[in-house]
């Protein structure tokens, strides 16, 4: 069975490439700055958020750069939010294709996760720029050997997002309300994920426990340990423990497997509902 899936995947890998490159080309067509927006957007968002949180809420992250703290979480959250949203509408949006030609349907959510992934890689440029600039102010903030483990966090984020994307794509075919529901869900999810604040300001023990179960928190925290360190390491960057590696990888793979199972279970019925 795996061999069959692999052969099929290889046959349609060119289609996947075409879908990805189409989305990428169409995205910035006719905009003057084009791809530069991928770099500018997170930076502008970071500036606005840091102004609001530093000046209005008087928020401080003692001993480490708030800008880097914010941006390292923000780009990961943005990836998740954009990719999962696009994946959700990818099957419904490509109905005209699904209805006419056979193709493996998972290719649509997968292509969306990949397109946003390319975008995500571009946002690493401003992240590293900010790390270098803030490095003049914070002694421990240096690009170090542990950064080689960062791709692992991003890979987990990708796998997790793809899993969620598959589930959302399936549900939204049968229940169009999902588009609106998920908008609210992402908003709640964003505020429950420590992107702009430190998780330690949460005093409610139950809430704190629940928040730590959030896989996105795991991945973001994983990256932050490497880039910034945390209070346990006295804000010196360090490599997360093996247990942390396992938790990230495990949660991502489980969600992906659930996503695949749900998608596979329902995919033959898509055509009657879209």
């Amino acid at each position: 069975m795996f061999k069959r899936i692999w052969i099929n995947f290889k046959k349609y890998s060119f289609l996947l490439k075409q879908l990805v490159s189409r989305d990428f080309k169409v995205k910035y067509k006719r905009s003057v700055l084009g791809m530069l927006w991928s770099l500018l957007y997170p930076v502008l968002m970071m500036i606005v958020m840091s102004l609001v949180f530093k000046n209005v809420f008087k928020f401080e992250t003692v001993g480490r750069s708030y800008l880097v703290y914010l941006l390292s979480g923000l780009i990961m959250w943005n990836y998740f939010s954009e990719a999962s949203n696009l994946s959700m509408s990818s099957v419904v949006g490509n109905f005209s294709l699904i209805n006419k030609v056979y193709m493996p349907k998972y290719i649509f959510p997968l292509s969306k996760c990949l397109v946003v992934g390319i975008n995500f890689l571009l946002t690493l440029i401003p992240l590293y720029a900010v790390i270098i600039i803030e490095g003049f102010k914070f002694e421990s903030l240096r690009i170090n050997i542990y950064h080689l483990a960062l791709p692992y966090a991003y890979l987990c984020l990708f796998i997790f997002t793809l899993g969620i994307g598959l589930i959302l794509a399936t549900v939204s075919v049968f229940l169009r309300d999902m588009f609106y529901i998920y908008g609210i869900v992402t908003m709640i999810w964003m505020y429950l994920t420590p992107i702009m604040y430190d998780i330690n300001i949460i005093e409610n023990k139950v809430l704190l426990f629940l928040m730590k179960l959030n896989p996105l928190y795991l991945y973001i925290n994983f990256a932050r340990k490497i880039i910034l360190g945390d209070e346990y390491s006295n804000f010196v960057p360090y490599l997360p423990s093996l247990k942390y590696f396992a938790a990230c990888g495990g949660s991502a793979v489980i969600v992906l497997l659930i996503g695949i199972a749900v998608f596979k279970w329902k995919q033959d019925r898509f055509i009657y509902y879209v």
Binding site: L15, K17, Q18, L19, M103
Partner: peptide
């Protein structure tokens, strides 16, 4: 794009 939809390779 259309060619790849029909299952042809590059």
């Amino acid at each position: 794009l259309n060619g790849s939809v029909m299952g042809y390779n590059k």
